[in-house]
Design a protein around this nucleic acid. Structure first.
Lengths: 211, 211
DNA sequence: CCGAATCCTGGTAGATACTG
DNA sequence: CAGTATCTACCAGGATTCGG
């Protein structure tokens, strides 16, 4: 890890998370613990040796930990430490800047549901605290909850006991989040199990956050 | 500028400001318009060709503009655009993370008063809105004001009509901001012209923000 | 003197193949 | 599945030179 050699907190932060791909690795892990192969598919374009290097450096910096889940699912996963979770506000601020001021994406850019959903993360929501919505987008699973401060929280993987489950295609999700369709119109292209009203509230929270 | 090729606002932000040295160039310009040579001294270690490249790329990205001041001081300066100023929250969040979680600085790291003062930027302050304090640290000039939201605002260069002027050494500033001395004890190592009470309030706002 | 462009060197990223 | 090994190309770092 090459340092700037400056007695400045911003420069020291960049010493640790300023290298190429590093913030995006943290982005993937904000969804929850992830396996090496999950990270590879969530970071299209990253060379595998570079991912291995970044994961090693992030461990040494105390931002992530490597853990082997107990049997029978004896897989090794990477997850954020407290210091890693503390990066969330900085990444959210940079993400908001990107939404407003970065050049528009090229149409050759790859798109993943997780990246869109993360844009809704930390946004104000009318989702009731304590209620969980599971979102299934083209066989990718997420679950959404509200923080005590009524901001949206997004995680990867299945929910424990969701109050509602919404199933839709990636295309439908992007049309909703880009405000190309309304929540009410979106419902016709989804399958909903459980609390229908909660599902509508969830869709409303996602509506237009990418616009 | 190498892109990630991802349809993700965070990745698109990093496409523009993710390269090495780029956030630090923006950091220097948050103090106000700066000349090329000012930037070189404010970014110790940067190769001159790399600074030129970064400045060109930042202009193309619409984050900074190059301007030639009117005579008699016909110097060319770089300054942030609106999009550039909008990066401030993201840099502040990353700076806060660095203060709390980044490895401690090496004692060979270079230190500059501006970097310390920027850490106090956006912090809550009891400095009255509309009153200006000029700070002279080893012949480097800054001026501090309060935003309408009562957070501290730091700029480089002389103030227009400061209500108070504080002169001190770099060492004194760092001892105050690292909480090694109190504001009251600091006053004995400073020269103050103008509003003494305002000066004390300013020193209190700076006290311990580096700790 | 300010604001760079040029040249060279070493390291890091990118791409692919390979292994426990 | 979870990485390591190898190679190439490019970018950063450093010194020097150049034009206004």
């Amino acid at each position: 890890m090459k340092r700037y050699g400056q007695h400045c907190p911003l420069a020291r932060a960049l010493d640790v998370v300023g290298e190429r791909w590093t913030p995006l690795v943290v982005r993937e892990l904000t969804l929850g613990p992830r396996r090496y192969s999950d990270l590879l598919t969530g970071l299209p374009g990253i060379p595998t040796n570079l991912l291995a290097t970044r994961l090693r450096d992030l461990q040494n910096a105390g931002i992530i930990t490597k853990r082997t889940l107990p049997p029978p699912t004896a897989v090794t996963v990477y997850e954020l430490t407290e210091a890693g979770h503390a990066l969330r506000p900085a990444l959210n601020a940079l993400r908001e800047w990107g939404r407003h001021y970065a050049p528009p994406p090229a149409d050759t850019d790859t798109a993943q549901p997780a990246w869109a959903l993360l844009s809704a993360s930390a946004h104000p929501t009318s989702l009731p605290t304590g209620r969980t919505c599971e979102l299934r987008v083209d066989s990718e699973l997420f679950h959404l909850t509200a923080t005590p401060e009524s901001t949206l929280s997004v995680h990867g993987g299945p929910a424990h006991a969701p109050h509602t489950v919404i199933t839709m295609s990636t295309d439908t999700l992007f049309r909703l989040m880009s405000a190309h369709t309304t929540p009410t119109a979106t419902i016709r292209h989804t399958t909903i199990t459980g609390d229908h009203h909660l599902a509508h509230t969830t869709l409303t929270s996602l509506h237009g956050v990418l616009a």
